[in-house]
Nucleic acid binder design. Structure first.
Ligand SMILES: [Mg+2]
Length: 217
DNA sequence: GCGACAG
DNA sequence: ATCTTGTCGC
């Protein structure tokens, strides 16, 4: 179940723990995404070397899909699959790219911020479409405060909405994501998405061979 | 009340 | 996100 009133309070409380600060030197970048099929949620975490944009590691998590998707509450649906995959990584990335928004959210706490606060590590939101904020050229402006909450970039012609998750600045986040654009895709997030689709082919009888067992969370 | 609305 | 194949164009 998902109690929207309680979930909203969680976001408002945890949003106070978002940290805005320069990104540390980045050698590796993580990517997180989730796909669904037959009532299951397949989470994937990947690690990419930033200098050559080549994959270093991939980890999976197979979970029962229990939470529904409700706009502005995406984290409650995808954070478990994403974190379970992330925790399996042996190489922890210097910063994590999350498929979704960070501060570009009505309560300044999209899934990228949620994960950044929970892990206490740098995260950046990379979304394919807008959720909140007014586009003013390259800037995404919060209509209620006039603050810049995100930036719109183009990767191979496609729009991408970049916002700080936590432990980063919008400038550092934007510069890093632009470096990771290759063939019209932001590599870490795209690689995670592709593996998420491949993971759906794993037959339930083989889950244990992938270090997974379906438990009730 | 109406329209918007990450994945 | 998912349901779904071929087809038009570079
Ligand atoms: Mg996704």
């Amino acid at each position: 179940m998902l109690n929207l009133e309680a979930a909203k309070k969680v976001q408002e409380l945890l949003s106070k723990r978002v940290v805005l600060k320069p990104l540390p030197p980045v050698d590796t970048v993580g990517g997180l995404d989730v796909s669904y099929a037959s009532g299951l949620a397949y989470g994937v975490a990947v690690v990419v070397k930033v200098d050559d944009i080549q994959p270093v590691e991939v980890a999976y998590s197979i979970n029962k899909s229990v939470m529904p998707y409700v706009p502005t509450f995406l984290a409650f649906r995808e954070i478990t699959p994403m974190l379970r995959a992330y925790l399996k990584l042996r190489n922890k990335p210097d910063v994590i790219l999350v498929d979704g928004h960070g501060l570009a959210h009505p309560r300044r706490f999209g899934i990228a911020s949620h994960i950044g606060v929970v892990l206490g590590r740098p995260t950046i939101g990379v979304a394919k479409s807008r959720l909140y904020g007014e586009e003013q050229g390259e800037a995404l402006i919060d209509p209620s405060t006039g603050e810049e909450i995100g930036r719109v970039i183009r990767c191979g012609g496609k729009k991408r909405y970049i916002s700080v998750g936590s432990h980063a600045t919008l400038e550092d986040a934007t510069a890093l994501v632009e470096k990771l654009c290759k063939n019209g895709e932001i590599v870490p997030v795209d690689l995670a998405h592709k593996h998420t689709q491949l993971a759906k082919r794993i037959k339930p009888e083989k889950f244990d061979q992938w270090g997974e067992a379906l438990l009730d969370y």
